[in-house]
Design a binder for these strands. Structure first.
Lengths: 116, 116
DNA sequence: AACCAATGCTACTAAAATAGTAGCGCCCAA
DNA sequence: TTGGGCGCTACTATTTTAGTAGCATTGGTT
């Protein structure tokens, strides 16, 4: 159903409306998309470095995600390697709090399991 | 590779470390997971209502996501239907800003395309 | 009682995305 | 000229998702 890279304004995987939030969710809802942004937040790196940081994600997927994220204006490539654009860094600002949250979530879940 | 529902502490799709943030990214990186949380933020609803709100997502996927999100402590079901747990609402607080951001992103992207 | 509509699904097939592995062509330094 | 790192592409196998049909149950209505 998706016509390729999710783009606000046109139908995306799972969404026919093209509402920006749905396009964004489609983009982020692909394997390693969030992980790539997360890793790139610590600075530019090469394809293979990024691959290592993302636990040996297959080059097929990595390359596909990079292209998508580039077309979406979040990732770019220069002498230093792949990195976040200004907009990408901006998005990361929203993503950042998920780090701490996920740890609280992990604690809550393991506590919940102790109860049973 | 994924052993089912992504759970912090155990390996998940695309991650062998089980770091909470990776488990969270795995959970969120599945089709409609983010959309479901987004829609449920406006209050509890029935399975079919939720399906309608999520643009007729197939019941197969919806049911799978619901189970995953329930096991992850984000979604629950009561008399009023499916809804977010306290933790789910908490996560939504982090997700909320993405709405406005996605619209700025949409504007930036279309401006970018005008330039060429 | 018989009907009806809505609910939460399950079953099934087809299409698409992802995983996983191998290796190519390029560049640069030794 | 050999060796290593680079950004990939090619290919197959597996998993996920899409899409459609319909079943079993519940609750109200006639």
């Amino acid at each position: 159903m998706s016509a390729g890279v999710p783009k606000p304004g046109s139908p995306v995987r799972g969404s026919k409306t093209g509402k920006p939030i749905m396009a964004l969710f489609d983009l982020m809802g692909r394997s390693w998309a969030l992980g790539i942004i997360w890793q790139l937040s610590s600075g530019p790196m090469t394809f293979r470095q990024l691959q290592d940081r993302c636990e040996q994600v297959s080059p097929t997927v990595l390359n596909k995600r990079i292209k998508e994220l580039s077309q979406s204006g979040l990732v770019t490539r220069d002498d230093a390697g792949y990195g976040l654009t200004a907009m990408g860094k901006d998005l990361y600002q929203l993503l950042h709090p998920f780090g701490a949250w996920s740890e609280a979530w992990a604690r809550a879940l393991s506590a919940q399991q102790q109860e049973r």
